[in-house]
Amino acid sequence: MTTAIVRPRTSEGWSDAQLLHALEEVVETELNRHLKVAKEWMPHEYVPWSDGRNFDGVLGGEAWAPEQSKVSDIGRISLVLNLLTEDNLPSYHHEIATLFGRDGAWGTWVHRWTAEEGRHAIVMRDYLLTSRAADPVELERLRMQHMSAGFEADNSHSMLHSVAYVAFQELATRISHRNTGLHAGDPVCDRMLARIATDENLHMVFYRNLLAAALQLAPDQAMRAVADVVTGFRMPGHGMPGFERAAVRIAIGGIYNLRIHHDDVLLPVLRHLKVLEISGLGAEGLRAQEEIGLFMGELADQAQRFDERRAAFLARRRNT
């Protein structure tokens, strides 16, 4: 439950500074809830250390080869993509710390979120290298390329855009991790990613509840932010080397695609917040609400066409 919010009596829009101050109590409530339900876990407990051995190089170990991996091809592609996304954490921390600040409940949450996301990168990298699930040289070169480019949010118009984006993005990340584990072919990997997905779900709940409060506080502005994010959504790793090619493989493999994006990410958040049912909006809020409804209808049609093309492609592949 979020803290009750009283709407302003003025028709003027809220500035980011005013919104940060007005939502501080909600952030504190959600932070306290998160700290109560989040369970401590240790990355080293999820890594099969006994499988590890030296690589070639200064220690004169064995060179990496694809057949050494227990993980499926699609699992490896998705794992690397997910890890490279987590690797860019310094850029994400800078983005949200600049928008939300480093003081009070906002600052405490920013640092806590960063620490938890960092744990995800640690365990995934340790797993990938110890189990020889990925080429360590390629992985490091991709990390250097991706982090050297940095990250800038697509929807950096306002703090409300950032809140709306992470409400959907954290759920998308949870789904991606969970499906990667299910398709990886290694129960150790599946268990690790299920643990990470649990964290991502808690992050989603934090931001979703914060967005609910924002819709109550500044309905027109928040609705516009939701519309912009929903209609222009891209995963944070979209700028990494080879992202488009990897995204196609992941879509066909059933880890993350248009159908999943519509059914399992956008729709659940929009329904939970009752975005299309909110009344009392001004002209801008109504326009944004209508945009969301029209877009979701179009996306459902696109997802149906994708399903048909994917089914036909998989059928052809089975027959060759």
Rank of each mutant, 00 (worst) to 15 (best):
P136F: 01
F100K: 03
L31P: 06
G61Q: 14
V248H: 09
K274Y: 07
E291T: 14
A194T: 14
A105G: 10
D103L: 14
A38N: 14
M144H: 12
L128W: 04
A97M: 10
V37P: 03
G61V: 09
E62A: 08
A115N: 09
F233E: 04
G13N: 11
E28A: 04
G75Y: 01
D220H: 06
E86H: 04
G75S: 11
G181R: 00
I278S: 03
L139P: 00
G104E: 14
A115Y: 11
V58T: 07
G61W: 08
S91M: 01
A214S: 14
S162Q: 07
E40P: 03
S279Y: 08
L270A: 06
L35H: 11
L84H: 00
Y207D: 01
A246T: 07
H238V: 12
A164F: 07
G107K: 06
I74N: 00
T173C: 03
R316Y: 06
L31M: 08
A63S: 15
A227C: 08
G282V: 02
E308Y: 04
A38H: 15
F168G: 00
V71W: 04
N179S: 11
L270F: 13
E284I: 04
L273W: 01
F55V: 07
G57D: 11
N319M: 15
T85S: 10
T108H: 05
R317Y: 08
L171G: 02
E298I: 06
A303M: 10
N155E: 14
V47E: 00
A194V: 13
Y92N: 05
A312P: 02
Q304P: 03
N88V: 02
H262E: 05
T198I: 09
S148L: 08
H120W: 02
N82P: 01
I255M: 05
R76Q: 12
E67N: 12
L258H: 05
T231D: 11
A134I: 09
H146E: 12
R53F: 11
A303S: 09
G237W: 00
H238E: 13
D51L: 09
E67A: 12
V80F: 00
F306C: 02
S131M: 03
T108R: 08
A63W: 04
A311H: 11
M147I: 13
Y46C: 00
E152F: 09
L128V: 06
H261G: 04
A22T: 04
S69L: 13
D16S: 12
Q169K: 04
L314G: 03
F313L: 11
P241H: 12
G242Y: 01
V110W: 02
A164C: 15
W109F: 10
D228I: 02
L81H: 03
Y127S: 09
Q289S: 09
Q302S: 15
E298R: 15
N32R: 15
N319Q: 14
A218G: 06
M144T: 14
Q169C: 03
G232S: 15
K36G: 12
N155Q: 14
M296W: 15
L299R: 14
Y92S: 06
H272I: 05
E12H: 13
R174M: 15
V275D: 01
Q18D: 11
H94M: 13
N82R: 00
A288M: 02
S69F: 01
R76S: 06
